[in-house]
């Protein structure tokens, strides 16, 4: 799939990057991180403009996240009603989930941006619990700017060797997130006991 997407990036440049990052952030499991790294590598080679790759990537991701959030916020509960699944989403449960996200926005919204498989699910939860959009947007925006800048700079630095780095980046983020969560859990268990 990545090969086909890269062909589109070489053919249509920035609109292709926007569409791929948009749908990647919205819900589809697209390798948007690899596309951003490749786009930056093409920029180093003079085929594209690095600032435009970065801005397009951030804009596409933010638009995809916000679309997912608003779609679920406006129609999520109505769809659940039609599917007779509303009973699993009582007001108490939704409020409880919202207050947890509200308490830990960095852990939930910000860090989830680095895990392309998890971010759309977090958008759905934020939308269905009706987390205030301003709060969602702030942390989503900060997360996407950090994520896109980081991967674009990796692509820029490694240039034509981006393919090798791309193989390692997915595993690296799983390790980092699992490590952070483990530290959090250990701290919680140990300090609660004392």
């Amino acid at each position: 799939m990545l090969a086909t997407l890269l062909s589109y990036v070489l053919l249509y440049k920035y609109p292709a990057i926007f569409v791929i990052t948009f749908f990647g952030a919205f819900a589809l499991p697209l390798p948007s991180v690899s596309v951003l790294m490749a786009g930056s590598a093409f920029a180093v080679q003079g085929y594209m403009s690095f600032p435009l790759v970065l801005i397009t990537g951030i804009a596409g991701n933010m638009a995809g996240d916000s679309s997912g959030y608003w779609l679920v916020r406006l129609y999520g509960l109505k769809v659940l009603d039609k599917l007779h699944l509303r009973r699993f989403f009582s007001a108490d449960r939704l409020n409880g989930a919202r207050s947890q996200i509200d308490k830990h926005p960095i852990l939930t919204i910000y860090f989830s941006r680095f895990m392309t498989g998890i971010a759309p699910a977090v958008n759905v939860v934020c939308g269905i619990t009706r987390l205030p959009y301003k709060r969602f947007f702030l942390f989503e925006c900060l997360g996407e700017i950090t994520e896109c800048s980081m991967f674009c700079f990796i692509g820029y630095i490694f240039g034509s060797n981006w393919e090798y780095v791309s193989q390692l980046s997915g595993g690296f983020w799983v390790i980092l997130l699992a490590g952070v969560l483990m530290t959090f859990m250990v701290g919680r268990i140990v300090f609660k006991k004392k």
Binding site: T4, L6, V44
Partner: peptide, 20 residues
């Protein structure tokens, strides 16, 4: 690192890109 070698050519690359 900004340059690619002929051995790094892949079938997803376009001719416009290769020319450049």
């Amino acid at each position: 690192a900004q340059k690619i070698t002929p051995d790094q050519i892949r079938d997803w690359m376009t001719f416009r890109y290769l020319n450049m």
